[in-house]
């Protein structure tokens, strides 16, 4: 009796343990099956490098280049904003802020991560977009830049907390060695502490990119949703994720359009996978040292 009970418990735990792997594999195959179906009618190069995304015209065109460049532009913009700001913020929290302020700042940064992205998107629409519109004299403030700024806010908590961890874990004796040579606190930070924390900083940037590229709701709301080849950051764009979110409801199941949206999913999956892999490599390199 007891034996059987032990057996059942062990099996149950085992099943829960491998469930996540099973689900990942199932999702992956489902994604592949639905996405690859597109290429029965559409060529791979036409899909990846086609300049027009007209899914409901006749004949339909499924070129994701404008969407891909839209994602790239918004992501790059967000990283350009979030990384310097996040790095500076992490340095302040880890090295400069007095202990009490440090605790307050850290919880503040974590709270920023707790905002649902749709709330940030909504705030962006009513405050940031009109602001950008009047500053740059645009016809609409819903642009790639607006998306970049909102996404930078969303990536900041990840970037700051990982860089802060990396800085705090730099051995104390590096700092002592530097200060004992007569270096100032700032010289010690940028000549010794930051190089020593560099792999953690790179990992933070990678994970920040991962966070940004997968974000959907806020970019859907705030980037203007125009699937055209972007020429400027002050222009409306549409990202890969926003396209799926916006069109999934109207795509007929089993249609070419439906398969194309899944194919976009595969592209996103590959991008996220590569980014996470790189981040992992950087973090691992740090652990190995």
């Amino acid at each position: 009796m007891k034996r059987a009970f032990e057996f059942l418990i062990e099996r149950a735990i085992f099943l829960s343990g491998i469930a996540s792997i099973i689900f990942v594999v199932l999702i992956f195959f489902f994604l592949l099956k639905e996405g690859l179906a597109l290429f029965q009618t559409e060529s791979l190069t036409g899909f990846l490098f086609g300049k027009n995304w007209y899914p409901i015209s006749d004949p339909p065109r499924f070129g994701i280049l404008p969407l891909f460049l839209g994602s790239l532009l918004v992501t790059l913009g967000a990283i350009v904003i979030a990384v310097p700001l996040g790095l500076a913020s992490a340095i302040y929290v880890a090295e400069v802020a007095p202990p009490k302020l440090r605790d307050i700042l850290k919880s503040g940064i974590e709270l920023l991560a707790a905002f649902p992205s749709i709330v940030l998107g909504f705030i962006g629409i009513v405050t940031l977009a009109p602001f950008l519109k009047s500053v740059f004299h645009l016809s609409s403030g819903l642009t790639a830049l607006a998306g970049s700024i909102m996404l930078a806010f969303m990536a900041m908590p990840t970037i700051v907390s990982i860089i802060e961890d990396a800085i705090v874990s730099v051995p104390k004796n590096y700092r002592e060695g530097s200060l004992a040579l007569g270096a100032t606190h700032w010289q010690t930070i940028y000549r010794v502490v930051l190089p020593a924390a560099s792999s953690g900083i790179l990992a933070a940037v990678m994970l920040g990119i991962g966070r940004v590229i997968g974000e959907t709701m806020a970019v859907l709301m705030i980037t203007g949703n125009a699937a055209v080849l972007p020429t400027s950051i002050l222009q409306p764009v549409r990202t890969l994720t926003a396209t799926i979110a916006a069109e999934m409801g109207e795509a007929v199941s089993g249609s070419e359009h439906y398969y194309a949206l899944f194919a976009i999913g595969i592209v996103l999956f590959i991008i996220s996978f590569v980014i996470n892999l790189l981040a992992d490599l950087f973090l691992h390199r740090k652990a190995a040292r």
């Binding site: 051995p171 004796n173 590096y174 002592e176 060695g177 530097s178 200060l179 004992a180 040579l181 007569g182 270096a183 100032t184 000549r191 010794v192 190089p195 020593a196 040292r289």
Partner: peptide
């Protein structure tokens, strides 16, 4: 800064920088 330049220190565990 000047004091530590004139009076230097070697530590218990060798602490070369990761450079």
């Amino acid at each position: 800064i000047t004091l530590r330049k004139r009076i230097g220190m070697v530590f218990q565990r060798p602490n070369p920088f990761p450079l």
